[in-house]
Design a protein around this nucleic acid. Sequence first.
DNA 1: ATGTTGACACCGG
DNA 2: TCCGGTGCCAACA
Length: 98
Amino acid sequence: MTAESVREQILLCVESIPPGRVMTYGDVAEYIGSRAPRQVGRVLSEGHNVPWHRVVHFDGSCTAALSVEQRQRLISEGVRFLGERVDLKTHRWDGQPG
DNA sequence: ATGTTGACACCGG
DNA sequence: TCCGGTGCCAACA
């Protein structure tokens, strides 16, 4: 498991998130077997062609610097917001197709 | 090798 | 619910 493959796994995982669903950084990290949620954010910050907006914080809050953009995109996909946070109980995706 | 930083997570008050 | 502190891992100077 090289660092490069980890990046691939992260991107694959994020790409696999269906519209209208979200995952937390920790979820993605755990999904690929990493214990570094920060690395997820770091990889996404590199700027890839992936739905990064479907990755939110543990409490459902959006990424600070991109809160506006992220919220817009999510709402555009039908994600419901409770104030400034995503309704994780409804939209959180475990990575399982069902 | 060491210290600092970061699109984070978790616990306690 | 909001805020502060701590733990964790990887990249960078």
